[in-house]
Write a protein that binds this DNA or RNA. Structure first.
Lengths: 200, 200
DNA sequence: ATAGATAATCAACAAGTGTTCATTAAATAC
DNA sequence: GTATTTAATGAACACTTGTTGATTATCTAT
């Protein structure tokens, strides 16, 4: 209880953790996440196995910390359209989504790696949770159709956008982020009364 | 090469597999999926561990087979609105979604168990894949806005609906499937030009 | 009912897991 | 700079994992 915050600032910790993260990412380049053992990780990181267990319980925990950094980037991308504006109510999920597409495009290698090592599913649910929380928080106070359950609506749109991103990732980013934004606009603008979604 | 189909019909296999599935589901009632070991499973199933490895590689594989049954049910629910109809083009994702809500409601205990044991994320991606495939297949030939990328659109709506379902599950089914259907209709009918999704 | 096929079992194996403890090394705080 | 705290190490531990080979039990096919 002397530091600015009560953060763990011991250089040994950050160095060990960083080595473990680097080792895991390195191993994920060539091995399925499931096949990577704790022993693999500590050998690659050149650390004692006890060091791993001092900081983590599962190898998934390392990935979680890596993902946290990426998510921090995602959130700031998501929030950016809301910055420096008084007309908060007029801001849109659409423009947020566009920023998200740009974020994913920037972190392309990371997201590809998640797919390559079959570690995407854990990430997706985390992304959903975070985006849902942010959206609900940022849009609280904004009124729309009162019959609509705000949480269900948020979950609907957040998952929808992540669905597009998943498709994008799985197709190895063959589109650019502008195309993704255009598509989102087209999909949102196409009336539900059209053929595909016509009601009976 | 003598049976009706070349299915594995050996009673020993089906019995062993069933015992392993039952054991896993039973263990998931009280333990996080991650914490369940192969040893746990074979002890509970009262089988030799070699028997497990004869049929599966990971415990996840058992869950996959359980999930396959549920997914078969889901697909038939999904397809039901298309049955006995020539006006295929006019059928809607909406009515399919309504059937899906009913399916989830029926399999409530299963989906709750997936959440309870933290095994949902693997299931979700599988559900997405299956629904996407079915939707693309069933709707091929149907034309809508030609500018729209059909795969991205499908992924958008499939994930959106699964997003609603996820929210529903996580709130322990506090709504009924009719409410879910109504909400879907409201969300789809609410114009994108409204406050929340107004374009800048 | 019997023969042939193969699933299930048992025992044993090296390797990985998760934990503990005493020792060494490196950090922070004064 | 020195004292104090604490992270990292190395060795050892019982246990789990994934695999193998020989044996027994059970199935299918005839």
């Amino acid at each position: 209880m002397s530091n600015k915050q009560n953060l763990p600032i011991d250089r040994r910790i950050t160095k060990s953790k960083q080595a473990l993260m680097d080792a895991l990412l390195s191993l994920m380049q060539t091995k399925a996440f499931k096949k990577i053992t704790v022993t693999d990780i500590v050998k690659t990181a050149n650390l004692n196995r006890g060091t791993f267990y001092k900081h983590y319980e599962y190898k998934e925990d390392i990935l979680d910390e890596i993902v946290d950094d990426v998510i921090a980037d995602l959130i700031s991308s998501y929030r950016e359209p809301y910055k420096n504006t008084e007309t908060f109510e007029l801001m849109t999920l659409t423009s947020s989504a566009i920023k998200i597409f740009e974020h994913v495009s920037h972190k392309k290698e990371f997201y590809s790696l998640m797919v390559k090592s079959n570690a995407l599913s854990g990430l997706q649910s985390k992304l959903c949770d975070v985006l849902k929380e942010v959206t609900l928080k940022d849009l609280k106070g904004v009124q729309s159709n009162p019959k609509i359950n705000r949480e269900l609506q948020t979950s609907f749109y957040v998952h929808a956008i992540l669905g597009m991103i998943t498709e994008w990732i799985n197709h190895e980013f063959k589109y650019d982020s502008n195309y993704m934004s255009e598509q989102l606009l087209e999909i949102l603008q196409s009336r539900q009364g059209d053929v595909v979604f016509k009601l009976t």
